[in-house]
């Protein structure tokens, strides 16, 4: 569902090519923490591969998704007490709001940075790339938090 939305809607957004939120990352953010980390990274790999085929950017989304799935568990355990016991999906309802926001922001920025830098793959457009990372991540954070708020109500 998130992938479909990403491909059909958000990949078309363009504000001088700067605004390109990767909302499909929500799938990864929601994965329950009880999963084995290796399995989680394989899920990230598969999701990234699907996105890459759909976007003609082989490797870019895979690298970013694997990074996100690798960072996720240490991040959660360091921010939330008793995180190991969480067996449900990770949303704003299951962990404290402040922690969720921090968790989401860090992962979204990491993911967006990876996607933008790798798809540019050159330092000629560095300023533009950084602007793209900032604007896209901000919009993506907004959308994902908005989605969470709507769902928790």
């Amino acid at each position: 569902m998130a992938i479909a939305l990403q491909v059909l809607l958000f990949n078309r957004l363009s504000f001088y090519g700067l605004c390109h939120p990767q909302v499909y990352i929500l799938c990864l953010l929601m994965l329950p923490i009880a999963l084995r980390r290796e399995l989680e990274m394989l899920i990230g790999f598969a999701l990234g591969l699907v996105m890459d085929i759909l976007c003609n950017t082989l490797g870019v989304h895979i690298a970013a998704c694997v990074l996100v799935t690798f960072l996720r568990q240490p991040l959660l355990t360091s921010m939330v007490q008793n995180a190991e016991r969480l067996t449900t999906e990770i949303t704003m309802a299951t962990i404290p709001m402040a922690a969720y926001i921090r968790y989401a922001v860090i992962l979204i920025v990491a993911h967006q940075a990876m996607v933008s830098l790798l798809s540019a793959f050159s330092f000629h457009h560095l300023g533009w790339t950084f602007l793209q990372i900032i604007i896209s991540s901000a919009l993506c954070v907004g959308l994902i938090l908005g989605y969470n708020l709507l769902r928790s109500k």
């Binding site: 990274m41 990230g44 790999f45 890459d52 082989l58 490797g59 895979i62 690298a63 793959f121």
Partner: peptide, 10 residues
């Protein structure tokens, strides 16, 4: 996994 991704990318 990252190495695979970068190989594909390269």
């Amino acid at each position: 996994l990252e190495v695979v991704a970068f190989m594909l990318l390269a």
